[in-house]
């Protein structure tokens, strides 16, 4: 009873729900990003995304936790193509979390929007509620043609039919970095110790990842860049990805 009262006190403390152990965030500089999609393959490799096949693509059932969206601006010959990598924004007020009846997607103590595959019952409500459309559903159980399954990352589960999935900010890498930090007798992970697969691969170094709780981390500094903005900010989902908009050449 006493324990419960203590907990209640803790929960009622103002600001309790805003505090995270870590607060992982990302910036994507659209002035660097070339739309090369190296990040897309990196994510597929790291996170055991299925090879769905031509038919499923035709049915728009592809699974890409990270996709690059394209937008044309202007008309020929004054035309431009703009790219924007779109992945889960790990919203601090994630609209996808409230409607999940079984709490298969929730906010963890690192401020991540997590997805618990083996708890998901496949209502797809979260996908409807997500304004960024970055949640992907397993319409089938996908198989890997032997021996392609040998490349599967043992740190990440493979998913079965009926389960929702999405970008996890490569939570397995975060876990590993935390374990290393613990092994080293440190309490916290250092800036730069966690690099999600997409960030790692990016040939233009467009993406920066890190802990927003640490004011000195690279990502915290990038967050303050005047070119920064959040996609669909007006929806107040508090996305944790800040995009830096494409700059104009001063020439």
């Amino acid at each position: 009873m006493g324990k419960m009262r203590d907990k209640l006190k803790q929960y009622l403390k103002p600001g309790y729900y805003e505090k995270y152990d870590y607060h992982w965030g990302m910036t994507i500089d659209l002035d660097r990003c070339t739309g090369c999609e190296a990040c897309v393959v990196a994510c597929q490799a790291e996170n055991n995304l299925p090879i769905v096949g031509e038919k499923r693509f035709k049915e728009r059932r592809e699974i890409k936790w990270l996709r690059v969206e394209r937008y044309w601006e202007g008309e020929y010959p004054n035309i431009k193509l703009r790219f924007i990598p779109m992945l889960c924004q790990h919203c601090d007020q994630a609209p996808c979390e409230t409607p999940c009846p079984v709490a298969a997607t929730y906010h963890n103590q690192d401020g991540l929007n997590t997805q618990i595959y083996n708890r998901c019952i496949g209502t797809r409500t979260c996908a409807v509620y997500c304004p960024y459309e970055v949640r992907y559903f397993n319409w089938f159980t996908y198989k890997w043609d032997e021996p392609l399954e040998q490349q599967l990352n043992p740190d990440v589960t493979v998913r079965e039919k009926g389960v929702m999935e999405k970008c996890t900010f490569c939570i397995q890498r975060i876990r590993q970095a935390k374990d290393h930090a613990k092994d080293d007798g440190r309490r916290r992970v250092r800036d730069g110790e966690v690099t999600p697969a997409c960030v790692q691969s990016c040939p233009t170094k467009a993406m920066v990842f890190g802990d927003l709780n640490d004011p000195n981390s690279r990502v915290s500094k990038m967050y303050k860049n005047p070119r920064g903005y959040k996609v669909l900010e007006e929806l107040n989902t508090l996305p944790k990805i800040v995009y830096l908009k494409k700059a104009d050449s001063d020439v």
Partner: peptide, 10 residues
Amino acid sequence: VGLGASGQSR
């Protein structure tokens, strides 16, 4: 087979 039997998609 999975919900892919329906016409639902992304």
